[in-house]
Amino acid sequence: MQARLTANDLACRRGERLLFRHLSLDLASGEALHVTGPNGIGKSSLLRILAGLSRPFAGKATREGRVALLDERLALDEALPLGKALDFWRGLDGTQDFMPIEKMSLTDLLDVPVRYLSTGQRKRAAMARLLGTKAAVWLLDEPLNGLDDEARVTVERLAAEHCAGGGVCVVASHQTFAVESKRVLSLSDYAS
């Protein structure tokens, strides 16, 4: 898996406020980065810029390989059973693989409408959607929120496996995230 994620002198503005500036990073295959910082410092904004979903105020972000983003928004149809809702993305991603659903232990929940899922279950569903993309670059925004210990370990292990397989993983979280040989970027250092 070939992956690379670079950012050059990024700055991000939200409204009238400059959140961070002069941020550069370069992640090659197999590297993981943990973005830390207090609430509102711009972790989610950074991930959205890295994903190419929003434009930085200054600087440039480039990506090699497909990008997948996990954030607080589930992007699953609330009224549909989980299985059907995931099927839409599985169809678009062209995968018949049941592995993501099993890995996130969602097999028993496939008939449950998405709107009845708990916070942790929703997070697991979003993770299954992310696994299905087979993307090289993972951008995880608070992936451990609401997860129980077991699911937490699973997500950390999956991220480690992803990096070991040559992927790139960026985790934005104020919690600890146990992945070996990760780099840590404290966004407070770039605050203006």
């Binding site: 994903a51 190419g52 979903l53 497909r66 990008v67 997948a68 983003l69 954030d71 928004r73 589930l74 992007a75 699953l76 149809d77 609330e78 993305w89 678009l92 991603d93 959607r129 993309t133 993307a135």
Partner: peptide, 14 residues
């Protein structure tokens, strides 16, 4: 838009 559907489609090249 609220559910982030268009973000996920965008990331898939749609």
């Amino acid at each position: 838009l609220e559910a982030g559907m268009f973000d996920q489609l965008h990331l898939r090249g749609i």
